[in-house]
Write a protein that binds this DNA or RNA. Structure first.
Lengths: 189, 189
DNA sequence: GTCTATAGTGTGATAGAC
DNA sequence: GTCTATCACACTATAGAC
């Protein structure tokens, strides 16, 4: 015992993310988080102002990286190559953040709406979507492009009953996402 | 006033579905539902044994129809035509149920896990997925097939800032879903 | 940096009158 | 079939000691 020193804040984040992702933000109480860490609720309030503040801290880095990606994308020409590179870089960010955040966002979409950080994330995803879509393409092609980011998420949770590695899931997700943003081989009308 | 007679149960379902879909199952209290209907919480408990019981009643019909669809699918040959017809029939069921249920399931995935009805729905979706997938196809093609049901959902909520009708969204969703289950034009290895 | 203690509110659910 | 009243409990958050 007593093996932890100044890492309490990080440990709170880790446990909170795990529980939020596993059983939802609303259903996870501060008492539960505190018990899992063998501290008290009041200790949590020393490190974070509110419950929502824990979530904000969780998404902080990710949001910053998303901003950078979108800024980069807006400086590039709106070509198919740019869109494919956007998918690759977005996938890198997603997987670098670990499965926890992905799953949190995936399972708490309803909750995220009223959290301020949820609005931020939503606006970033819209920015990304606008970069991935060719507004002149047919609606079906636009839909396919819009689905590319979802694909990366779904790929990670689908086939949980298959005997394959996460790396294989990841590769499949990226491959399909790239195909989705590449448009059908259609002739110009 | 006094315009309602024996429709209280149905009115509870309607309001509950709306609120659950809008702000989440956990965040919606029975008090809120009751107030919206100008009845008391106790009145709710006359019609439904528990809060979860309201959700169960909401998904009851839908689950039955899904069972029929899967039973039908299992009787058909595992061809591309069958898979496409499955997508069409599933889409019909989805849209016939109205947007509320779709949105509920979409925004409360985390919550659905511990609800008994969530487990049921999940097993049905797995059954449907197995019918849509060709287990001999490359993993990327399997992923595309697995995404077809998601597509129908996403199509309905994406482009909420576009000036298009729900019917156009629906048509685009079905078109893309059909393409996803049809596999790439790949040669047999 | 972490504790005890508690305020203050809201929840799902029940009992029993009408 | 709907009501009033209430129970028992959990929650977020705060105050103040150590």
């Amino acid at each position: 015992m007593g093996e932890h020193r100044g890492d309490t804040r990080a440990r709170i984040q880790a446990v909170a993310l795990e529980l939020f992702a596993e059983q939802g933000y609303e259903k996870t109480s501060l008492r539960e988080i505190a018990e899992r860490l063998n501290v008290t609720k009041a200790a949590l309030y020393y490190h974070f102002k509110t419950k929502e503040d824990i979530v904000v801290s969780l998404f902080d880095d990710q949001l910053g990286r998303l901003d950078e990606l979108i800024t980069w994308g807006r400086e590039q020409p709106a070509t198919q190559e740019t869109r494919q590179e956007l998918v690759r870089r977005y996938a890198d960010q997603l997987y670098a953040s670990g499965p926890g955040l992905m799953r949190f966002a995936h399972e708490n979409q309803g909750t995220m709406r009223d959290l301020a950080v949820g609005e931020k994330l939503k606006s970033r995803m819209k920015g990304l979507r606008e970069l991935l879509i060719d507004p002149k393409a047919p609606l079906t092609d636009q839909l396919k492009s819009a689905m590319a980011p979802f694909t990366l998420n779904i790929a990670h949770f689908a086939f949980d009953d298959y005997d394959i590695t996460d790396e294989e899931r990841r590769a499949a997700g990226i491959a399909v996402a790239l195909e989705l943003v590449s448009g059908s081989p259609h002739t110009d009308a």
